[in-house]
Design a protein around this nucleic acid. Structure first.
Lengths: 131, 131
DNA sequence: ACCTATTTGTCCGTATGTATG
DNA sequence: CCATACATACGGACAAATAGG
């Protein structure tokens, strides 16, 4: 896994790292189930601080790309095959269109979805994985 | 504005602060347009680190509740800016229904949204953020 | 146009806590 | 119990955006 970082860039380091990892995931260089190096190790390789890598990991975790857990490390999430349902993807496309129309940012949209999801489902079925 | 923090609680400090602020917003103690104290000041009041407060502010900004900007400070977003468009909320409800139908977990749904969001961003008209 | 103060943003280093194996 | 690895918090430094003199 080869990640290149430019300390002189205006783009924050944690964003650069996250973007590199996203690309590695998209290109298949990182595949589902693959374990990423411990943040401490990657930090030494990239010559950045531990927190900078942890922040990048956390970012991708919030995007649903990585599973990051204490003591265990960081693993690439396996994609579910459920998303190919045509009605679902149509609903997604429609939502994105509406979101763009009202100028929602990605973060705002994610928050909206998260809240709505929890509100609709209720908290009784979340016991599996929470905290 | 009276926020109470419990350092001995298991709940992270930045979460406690964010939750207190959320409640102040919900109760009307903090109203749209109100300016929050500089993070440094609030940190001294609560006897926590500056970064802890900044993290709480950033959290609420990502939720669309606050507008946080360098040099300018932190203000409560006006409701009109975050008001849910009926067509948007309808799209959200529809998506959640479809997602539930195919048994998507929250994490899977978030991943699907973020990926689609990035993939469908063809417009480089993101310059509208300033004013 | 310049300078200064304010305020958030990023990054670093260190310490300690917590979950996992 | 112990090692691993992420999570939180603290503190300090500097940068960048903003506001005001």
């Amino acid at each position: 896994m080869r990640l290149s970082i430019d300390p002189s860039s205006a783009e924050p380091l944690f964003d650069q790292i996250a973007r590199s990892l996203r690309q590695a995931l998209a290109s298949g260089a990182l595949r589902p189930g693959d374990r990423l190096p411990p943040a401490k190790d990657l930090a030494e390789i990239l010559k950045v601080n531990l927190h900078t890598v942890l922040r990048a990991y956390a970012l991708l975790r919030d995007e649903g790309l990585l599973e990051v857990r204490r003591g265990r490390g960081t693993v690439v999430v396996s994609p579910s095959e459920k998303q190919i349902d045509p009605r679902l993807s149509q609903a997604v496309a429609h939502l994105l269109m509406e979101a763009h129309r009202v100028g929602l940012t990605e973060n705002e949209l994610i928050r909206l979805i998260t809240r709505s999801f929890r509100a609709n489902i209720g908290y009784d079925s979340i016991s599996g994985e929470g905290e």
